[in-house]
């Protein structure tokens, strides 16, 4: 089950539709890292609303997506972490430190604009 990636201006939106296998997650990482360069994107939104479980592998892969896309010049915002998933992440001892998060896609795009502007100022 691959994840559709939509381009909206200079932002890529990866909208996860259903439970993902480890391989699907790794494929998403590769595709985003490649597309960010090819499409000259400045921001990435990963919508995880459809994920009913985020275990240590999923969390590690999302962290590594954010790190890889940053090295390719884009900022990442993770949106839609479900309340039960948030509780499970805390219990597992997992964090998304250093990665911007937002409640939903709309708010995520707002956050992304701020993060992208902050990065531009830092240059």
């Amino acid at each position: 089950m691959s994840v559709p990636i939509l381009k909206q201006g200079d932002v890529l939106i990866a909208s996860i539709q259903s439970a993902l296998t480890d391989r699907d997650l790794l494929q998403l990482k590769d595709e985003l890292a490649e597309k960010v360069g090819r499409l000259r994107s400045r921001g990435v939104v990963i919508d995880v609303t459809a994920l009913d479980v985020m275990d240590s592998f999923a969390t590690r892969t999302i962290r590594s997506i954010a790190a890889a896309t940053r090295l390719r010049g884009a900022e990442t915002v993770v949106v839609g972490i479900q309340p039960e998933v948030a509780i499970a992440l805390v219990e597992l001892g997992l964090t998304l430190d250093g990665i911007a998060t937002a409640l939903d896609l709309e708010e995520g795009l707002d956050v992304l604009v701020e993060v992208m502007e902050a990065r531009r100022r830092d240059r």
Binding site: P83, E84, L92
Partner: peptide
């Protein structure tokens, strides 16, 4: 509620 997610996550690990 969240117990379902905690159980599913533990099984995943």
């Amino acid at each position: 509620g969240s117990d379902l997610t905690l159980i599913a996550t533990a099984i995943s690990e």
